[in-house]
Design a protein around this nucleic acid. Structure first.
Lengths: 208, 208
DNA sequence: CAGCATCCGCTTTGATACTG
DNA sequence: CAGTATCAAAGCGGATGCTG
C-alpha cells in the first residue's frame, strides 16, 4: 500500500494494516489460530487467491504474521499471528462492536461462516453465574456449528460442534444473531436442551 | 467501496469505513469537532480534494457524518460526526494504541500536525494526583502548539497554545513523542516552567 | 476564497486460468 | 496444497477548472 505519509499513530497503523482484506485476514487468524492457506481462503469468501498470497507476504514482512513449515509428516505451511499481530485483537473487537448493529439485516447473497459469530458472541454473552458448574452451548447457524463455553466469568468459543452441550440452538444465521443480540427470543430458534442456560449468559440488561 | 459480501460484524463495519482515508477523516472530526472542508483538508495532508469530497458524501450517506449549513453571517458548511459516527472513537483509539510504537521513527518527509499528538497523549498521560489543583501543559512540536489539561484523573487536549501553562515543552515532533512515550527525558526538550508537572502526568511505570 | 467536479495516467483489485 | 500469471476493471492521486 501506499503510505499516508503522516507522522500520526493512526495513519501509521493503517499504513501497515489498512489495505483491503488485511483486517479480515487478521480476523481469521485471531479466530482460528494457526491456519493453512486453503483454510484462510475458505474463511475469506470473495478474496482472490493472488491477493491472499500478496497480503500474507506483506503482513509477514511487517512482522504481523509468521509462516512456519510443518515437518514432513504434516508437510504443510501454517500461518499465524506474531505477538505483535495478536495485539490487533482490540482493534478487531472494537470494529466488531461498531459493526454489530449492522448485522440486523443480511445483505443479498452475503456469505456466512459460523466462526464469525464468535466476534459477536464474545461481545454479547457473559457468565452471570460463574460459581455454578460451567455450561456449554452449541450454535448451529445455517447448518454450521460453533461451540460456546463459560470460562472465568466470560465465554470462550470454538469452531465445530460441542461434545455434551447443555443447549443446542439452531436456525438461520440471521435468527441466531437476533437471539444473541437480544432482539429475538430463544423460542424463535429450534432448541434442544435447557433454554434457561441462555438466560444465564445474557447480560443483566440486554444490550443493543 | 465494494462490499466484502460477508455476513460478519467486522466485514460490515469495514464496508462502511474501510475505504482509504475514511478512518483518517473520522480521526480529524474526532479531534477537531465540527470542521470546514478546508480545515479537514489541512488536517489530512496528501488527500486529493475530489476524494475528500467523495468520502464525506459517502460517510454522510452512511449516517456517520452530518453536514450543516451555517446561517448567512458565517455562511459556511460544517461537517461533524453523528452520534453513530462518534461511536467510532474506540476503533480509532485502539488503532492509535497499536500504531504508537511505530512513532519511534519518523519516515522520510512525513507530514505532522500537533493535533495528532492528542491521540498519543490520551493514551500515555494520566493525572496521578487528581486531588491537587489542575495543571496545564503546552506542547510545541515542530512549532505547532497543543494544550493538555488535567481533568477527572485523565487529561484533555485542545488545539492551539495554552493561556497560563504551568509547563511549556518544545522541540521536534519526534522528541516530543519520545518524551510522551517515556523514551526520552524532559531535559531532551526545551522547557519553560516546572518540569515536575510532567512526572505527575506520567503513569506509575512508563509504558512502552 | 470555500467547496467542490472533471480529466487523465497510474496503481490496485478481482476473476480466472494455470503450475510445482 | 499453496500458490503464480495474466488481464480487464475499478480506484486513487495530481492537476486544473468551475461556481457561488
Amino acid at each position: 500500500m501506499r503510505s499516508y505519509g503522516q507522522y500520526c499513530a493512526v495513519a501509521k497503523a493503517l499504513d501497515v494494516i489498512g489495505d483491503r482484506w488485511n483486517l479480515l485476514v487478521i480476523r481469521e487468524l485471531l479466530l482460528r489460530g494457526a491456519s493453512r492457506y486453503t483454510d484462510l481462503q475458505g474463511g475469506l469468501p470473495g478474496i482472490a487467491t493472488n491477493l491472499l498470497a500478496e497480503r500474507l507476504r506483506a503482513l509477514e514482512q511487517a512482522g504481523v504474521v509468521t509462516r512456519e513449515e510443518a515437518p514432513p509428516p504434516v508437510a504443510t505451511t501454517l500461518f499465524s499471528l506474531t505477538e505483535r499481530g495478536a495485539q490487533l485483537a482490540p482493534v478487531v473487537r472494537e470494529l466488531a462492536r461498531w459493526g454489530a448493529p449492522l448485522m440486523a439485516e443480511r445483505g443479498d447473497g452475503e456469505a456466512f461462516r459460523a466462526q464469525w459469530l464468535a466476534m459477536v458472541v464474545r461481545l454479547s454473552l457473559v457468565d452471570r453465574l460463574p460459581d455454578r458448574p460451567p455450561v456449554t452451548v452449541e450454535l448451529r447457524a445455517d447448518g454450521e456449528a460453533m461451540t460456546v463455553e463459560t470460562a472465568g466469568g466470560g465465554v470462550r468459543t470454538r469452531p465445530g460442534p460441542a461434545e455434551h452441550p447443555d443447549l443446542v440452538l439452531s436456525g438461520s444465521a440471521e435468527r441466531v444473531v437476533g437471539v444473541l443480540a437480544g432482539r429475538l427470543d430463544v423460542r424463535d430458534l429450534d432448541h434442544e436442551g435447557d433454554p434457561e442456560v441462555l438466560r444465564r449468559l445474557r447480560p443483566e440488561r440486554a444490550a443493543a
